[in-house]
Amino acid sequence: MQVTFNLPDDVAQRVNALENCLPQILELGLREFEAITHVGFSGIAEVLEFLATLPTPEEIIALRPSPALQTQIQTLLEKNRTVGLTPDEEKIWQSYEYLEHLVRMAKAKALLKLKDYSSTKTG
């Protein structure tokens, strides 16, 4: 399929230089766009992006949910208590539970690293 659209000159130059990669670039861009517009995913993406920066053990231990993520979780908890979750909301809740599990594992490993570091430093 052929698609025609107008781009700002600076973007057109960048696209022109990557012409052979354009289908892959569009696919990646569409995936990211769909992910950030999916309800609930933005909070998960925040945590995963943080972990992808390879934070220090201290930064991992200090990790707390953003206010937006905390609000999403509280909203789902309240809805679950009152009227129940839809199947889509249940999937989101399960992904939050799994994310919490991953963060707990990361924090436990970070604590072990700090403990090992302090014992080798004093020993």
Rank of each mutant, 00 (worst) to 15 (best):
G84T: 05
Q24K: 11
G123S: 09
L54N: 05
T86L: 09
P67L: 02
K115A: 13
Q74G: 10
Q24V: 09
D10G: 05
V47A: 15
D10V: 10
R14I: 14
F50M: 03
A62E: 12
G43H: 01
A68V: 03
H101G: 08
E34R: 10
E34H: 07
Q13E: 12
E90M: 10
Q24Y: 14
K107H: 05
G29A: 00
T56E: 06
E59L: 04
A12C: 06
L7M: 13
V11A: 08
A12L: 12
E97P: 03
V3R: 05
I73N: 03
Q94T: 10
E49G: 05
G43R: 00
S66G: 05
I73A: 08
Y98W: 12
C21Q: 15
F50L: 03
Y98V: 11
V15K: 01
L76N: 09
N16Y: 04
R81T: 08
E19K: 15
P67N: 02
P23V: 11
E58V: 06
D10R: 08
Q74I: 09
T86I: 06
E19N: 13
I36Y: 00
T37E: 05
T4K: 09
T120S: 12
L99D: 05
L54V: 01
G43V: 01
E59V: 01
L112S: 12
A45R: 03
L102P: 03
K91S: 11
G29C: 00
K91M: 13
L112I: 06
V15A: 14
I25M: 13
R14E: 12
E46G: 02
F50A: 03
E89I: 06
S95E: 14
S118A: 13
H38S: 11
E89F: 07
L85R: 08
P67C: 02
T53F: 00
R31Y: 04
T86H: 06
P65K: 01
I25Q: 06
V83I: 15
R31Q: 13
G84C: 04
V47Y: 01
F41C: 02
H101F: 14
T86S: 15
K91E: 15
G123I: 07
T71F: 06
E49Q: 10
K109T: 05
V103W: 02
I60F: 00
E27L: 13
E90D: 06
I36D: 00
Y117L: 14
K121R: 14
N80G: 07
L77H: 12
Q94R: 15
V11C: 07
P23H: 07
P23C: 08
F5A: 10
R14V: 14
A45C: 00
M1N: 05
E19I: 12
K121C: 07
W93R: 11
A52K: 10
Q2S: 11
L111H: 08
